[in-house]
């Protein structure tokens, strides 16, 4: 049942997967630095999750799902699972691109094809992004939330770009394990917030 809802999300946004993949490819190739997985996963997550929410709103998908034997809690949970599956797919895609790119250029080898730290940092940022993005979309609807999301995404992009300098100059040594755990906890809290918002919605 849950798998069916996640699959539905992917089918609904599949027309935009190529566009998201193109973005991911461009980020990895033209901006090869250690924050690549963060930029890529957050960007692709944003593009595809916002498409899913837009399609749901445009086609009144929530009303359709409401007539099927799903609880509202299950529908919300599936959306969070979708965001995590998207993250995993992004990281896999990033690794494949890096693997291919490193055959042609040493600069990609230097960054490292797959690093636990980079992946955990990307996971933390993706969690934080979804933790804000999903309840905001449930609360405001995809149209209203789109502009706020866009600002948030650009802010995240700028932060990602300059984070090495910020953290470096401040001498902050980020423990990515702690960061990832805290982000996962925030995502869990966000899920309960979304359930409350979605449970009160009329379709």
């Amino acid at each position: 049942m849950l798998l069916n809802l996640i699959k539905k999300d992917f089918i609904v946004c599949r027309a935009y997967v190529w566009f998201a993949a193109l973005y991911g490819l461009a980020i990895t190739i033209f901006m090869p630095f250690s924050f690549g997985p963060v930029l890529m996963s957050t960007g692709m997550n944003y593009l595809l999750l916002s498409t899913i929410h837009q399609m749901d709103d445009r086609c009144k998908g929530s009303a359709l799902l409401g007539t099927l034997p799903y609880s509202r809690k299950q529908i919300v949970f599936a959306r969070y699972c979708t965001s995590m599956v998207l993250f995993a797919a992004c990281i896999a895609f990033y690794t494949v691109i890096m693997l291919i790119a490193s055959q042609f250029s040493n600069s990609f080898k230097e960054i490292g094809i797959f690093t636990v730290e980079g992946t955990l940092l990307a996971f933390a940022v993706s969690c934080l992004f979804s933790a804000i993005f999903i309840p905001l979309n449930y609360r405001l609807g995809s149209e209203k939330a789109r502009y706020i999301n866009m600002i948030g995404f650009i802010g995240l992009f700028v932060l990602n770009m300059s984070s090495s300098e910020i953290f470096g100059s401040a001498g902050v040594d980020i423990n990515v394990y702690v960061l990832a755990s805290v982000a996962a906890a925030i995502l869990a809290v966000s899920y309960f917030v979304s359930v409350v918002i979605y449970s009160k919605k009329d379709f």
């Binding site: 086609c59 007539t67 099927l68």
Partner: peptide
Amino acid sequence: IGVILDIQNFYEMLTLKEMKNIVAKSFK
């Protein structure tokens, strides 16, 4: 329960078969 609403809430970009698969897998 079978439901037919006045506004037919289907994902318009999907084919009938894809839409059916989503609905079919929801029911026991």
